[in-house]
Amino acid sequence: MFRKMVFDFTILIVSFFGTWYLLSQIPFIKEEKDFEISLRQEEEIGRILRKIFIADADTIDDEEVKSSVNKMTRFLESELDSGKYTYRITVIETSDINAFSLPGGFIIIYSGLIDFCKTPEELAGVIAHEMGHNENHDVLKRLAKNISITIILNSVIGSDKGNLDDILQQVISTKFDRCQEELADAFAVDLMLHSGINPEHLAHFFERLLDQKPAILNQLDFLMTHPADDKRIEAIRGRAEGRYFQEQPLEVYWPGLKEHPR
């Protein structure tokens, strides 16, 4: 009887794990495929979405701000191996603390974020993080979860305003998943190290963001869409730990950037 019980027990275990294994072969979740989209198409999507976004926003056209942000971006970009995109930053006048990527190398930064940053290196860290989302195609992946890339492309080609508004809304409000955030952080740390910027600035930025959470909850769009926690900050420090880099000063006029005309 005991042998029979052992046999039955084995059958039970095998049937459970066998069923699980067989079912796991069925793709219940659509795998994210690599996008069959050219850089030019991606750039076109980004350009149109940026255009729609800034149509209702107050952009900062101050030369001092534009030149400082561009200088910072070119500085980071020069250390990138891929050279896929020419990053273009647009600064929007609003007290909200936020930054987000649009496809094709377009990045939107809110002036509230610049005000919140204590050093240009913190701002460079955030830009590097957004570059990471762009390099990893995170925005398109996120969009593709709800809308097919073909529909996005058709909306861009046909200038379908209604669809494009929806697409833009999703870009702004939807969270990246933890894995995407971690990869963008890792990318930012690597890029900062290559550029001679201490990644500790990015860790500090997230720490201050978390510390001030209750006080400025309404303005913390960045925290809402890029949820930070201690583990994430630890991961940033962990990735940078023990890695050699030669610190380089960021040659931007920080007071000019902070005190831009409003």
């Binding site: 459970f16 699980w20 079912l23 796991s24 979740i29 998943d177 894995c179 949820p227």
Partner: peptide, 20 residues
Amino acid sequence: FRKTAISNELISFVITVVIF
């Protein structure tokens, strides 16, 4: 809690559990 994506493994596990 971890706000991670639902995996194919979890869905197939839950279906297996439902079958059992």
